[in-house]
């Protein structure tokens, strides 16, 4: 595999206990420094793919049946999540999963725990510079913040270790479109500042395709379409299925 690839998922199949395959022979690459969007309907397997990459399948009673996840040249299938994060992966999970009873600053410090103690303050400063709102609220219990602030906190906690690869799952869920746009603007800055590559799972396909350079579309556990974001956006299949221009009423068309 090329030195220019930070993440490659190779022929990955994933199953959950007592269910069929959630992912079937999925391959995907994220170039170093690149931004890749992962699109698909609900239940297509997007979150499963993110879990397979970050190592959270175990926690959800899922397992890799075949294929591999290669991060920075190394197969990480068997590594627990905390070791993958130490290699330079980070995740802003679906539903944000912040620590509700901890203060904003303590949330960030948990993310900073992988850093040597002398570097933690720099990490905090960098995150506060990206999201000044978090600095204003740093002493507050995270559970009492708005959805947008919680999303910033989840991103800040992931970014504080300056990851090489940032996985972002459903950032826009339940947030106002304007706020979502401003958070994506911050993510652009993150790439300039930290050089982080990103894999973005997003319900809002239009937004994601405007932000990413490349895109993959998952459909019922398989990659249905992939390519440059502009080409994917232009494809009629994705327009019909996900951009919502015109829903084709033929349910059996994919089968």
């Amino acid at each position: 595999m090329s030195h220019d690839t930070i993440l490659s998922v190779e022929n990955l199949s994933v199953g959950y206990a007592r269910k069929g395959l959630a992912l079937d022979d999925v391959s995907l690459t994220v170039p170093r420094g690149g931004i890749v969007a992962l699109l698909g309907a609900n239940g297509a397997g997007k979150t499963t793919l993110i879990r397979a990459i970050s190592g959270l399948l175990d926690h959800h009673h899922g397992r890799i049946e075949s294929g591999q996840v290669r991060f920075d040249g190394r197969v990480v299938n068997a590594l627990p999540p905390h070791k993958r994060i130490r290699l330079g992966m980070a995740q802003s999970p679906e539903g944000r999963l912040i620590f509700k009873n901890l203060t904003v600053e303590d949330n960030l410090l948990v993310g900073a725990a992988i850093l040597p103690s002398a570097k933690r303050q720099d990490g905090l400063d960098a995150v506060y510079a990206l999201f000044p709102r978090l600095k204003e609220r740093r002493g507050q219990s995270a559970g009492w913040m708005s959805g947008g602030e919680q999303q910033m906190l989840a991103l800040g906690r992931a970014l504080i270790g300056r990851p090489q690869l940032l996985l972002v799952d459903e950032l826009s869920l339940g947030l106002a479109p304007l706020l979502v746009r401003s958070i994506y603007e911050e993510l652009k800055k993150v790439r300039e500042l930290f050089g982080s590559s990103m894999l973005i799972v997003e319900q809002n396909a239009k937004l994601a395709l405007g932000f990413a350079e490349q895109a993959y579309v998952l459909d019922r556990g398989r990659i249905a379409l992939s390519g440059f974001a502009a080409d994917v956006a232009a494809s009629t299949a994705i327009r019909d299925s996900y951009l919502g221009t015109e829903r084709v009423g033929n349910e059996g068309a994919h089968a």
Partner: peptide, 25 residues
């Protein structure tokens, strides 16, 4: 302490701790 913080974080939510790089076990 830093370890104490990670323990409080783990108590707050196991999955949240896992995605944040805490060795939950």
């Amino acid at each position: 302490t830093s370890v104490g913080l990670l323990m409080r974080a783990t108590a707050d939510g196991h999955e949240a701790a896992l995605v944040s790089g805490v060795n939950v076990n």
